[in-house]
């Protein structure tokens, strides 16, 4: 059956009653608009480079609008910006228990911050930044692979036109990257090159066996053993890091907190790129007096070394002095002897 063509009788009538006049008709040759010639500056100079994408959103290998990609980006920045990360496994912790644990953690950290402020140290404001965060394990593992294995050797700006060139109309440096994710010059963590580096299965992460099952992380923006000690004493109390006593902190011994903590397990930590197990983490937390304490210890050791070195060097010169002096006395005596003879 041929397709049915709908007839519009009224339209046919209109067309028939008014025949198109030759003056009203348009001709194709007349309709094409002539574009004006480009200004003379454009023809004698090269066009300035134009950024083809928003500067904060370089093209990404995976679709950027999905949650996975954004989580990946977020975890990368978390891993890059926090030198100390604690890894916990959480086994079916309820929402009420999470809330209670987070509250206790915040209170304990605030208390520590106040104490440090009383001692006259400048506030590090770590209390607001250290939080326990549940992560998507596999996305976190992938982000960690990117952070560990993708080291772009050169910046995108190396290809940029130098701003000192008088021909460039703007002093802003514009990277000459194209708007496709396959561009080799991208250095951000969501680029195709980053993905390729991370998907090399021959490279093994040290943290790989830990990254399975339900995980939560506590990230610290700086390595601060005092804060780590507080967090450990709240989240995984041990003889070295005792939990707060019932008398000092009755809220901590509420059933919601305690039942939640029973289900949290400290697995390990990543400290400045190195992986520590539970014992190692406790050791880091046990550094007395934090970084200042470590510096004091180092100064003490170096002072000891300096003293030893000074006495050693002094000893050589002193012995030389004694020999020369002895020789002088000896010669003087001989001279005296010569005179008497």
């Amino acid at each position: 059956m041929p397709p049915r063509i709908r007839l519009r009788p009224r339209a046919l009538c209109v067309r028939a009653s008014h025949p198109a006049s030759p003056i009203g008709a348009t001709y194709a040759s007349l309709a094409t608009a002539t574009t004006p010639a480009p200004p003379i500056e454009q023809t004698i100079r090269s066009t300035p480079p134009v950024l083809r994408y928003p500067p904060t959103q370089p093209p990404s290998h995976k679709p950027p609008e999905v949650r996975k990609t954004q989580l990946h980006r977020q975890y990368q920045s978390l891993l890059k910006s926090s030198p100390l990360i604690l890894l916990f496994q959480h086994n079916n912790v309820k929402a009420v228990e999470w809330m209670a644990i987070r509250r206790e953690l915040a209170i304990a950290l605030q208390k520590l911050e106040d104490e440090l402020a009383k001692q006259g140290r400048e506030g590090t404001a770590l209390a607001e930044q250290v939080k326990i965060q549940v992560i998507q394990t596999n996305i976190f593992a992938s982000a960690l692979r990117v952070v560990e294995f993708f080291q772009p050797e050169e910046g995108t700006m190396d290809h940029a036109q130098p701003p000192t060139d008088p021909r460039t109309p703007t002093s802003a440096q514009v990277p000459q990257t194209t708007n496709v994710p396959e561009d080799e010059r991208f250095t951000h963590g969501l680029s195709r090159r980053a993905w390729e580096a991370a998907s090399n299965r021959k490279l093994k992460l040290e943290l790989e066996p830990l990254l399975s099952g339900p995980l939560a992380v506590v990230a610290f923006p700086t390595v601060s053993p005092q804060h780590l000690k507080t967090v450990l004493s709240i989240l995984s109390p041990s003889p070295a890091f005792p939990a707060p006593k019932r008398r000092t902190n009755p809220d901590y011994h509420e059933p919601a907190v305690q039942s939640g903590l029973q289900k949290l397990m400290l697995l390990g930590a990543r400290v400045e790129g190195k992986v520590f197990d539970t014992e190692g983490t406790r050791w880091v937390g046990g550094i007395e007096g934090g970084l200042d304490g470590l510096r004091a210890q180092l100064v003490h050791v170096l002072q000891g070394v300096g003293g030893g070195l000074a006495s050693a060097l002094e000893g050589a010169s002193r012995s030389l002095y004694f020999t020369v002096e002895g020789r002088r006395m000896d010669m003087e005596e001989k001279e005296k002897g010569d005179k008497t003879e």
Partner: peptide, 23 residues
């Protein structure tokens, strides 16, 4: 030992225990 790749079933078993089992 969490650092051994063979510890996965042990950890997953723990995550299979329901939230109020301990209570």
């Amino acid at each position: 030992n969490p650092f051994s790749p063979r510890s996965k079933p042990a950890r997953l078993f723990l995550s299979l225990i329901p939230p109020n089992a301990r209570a």
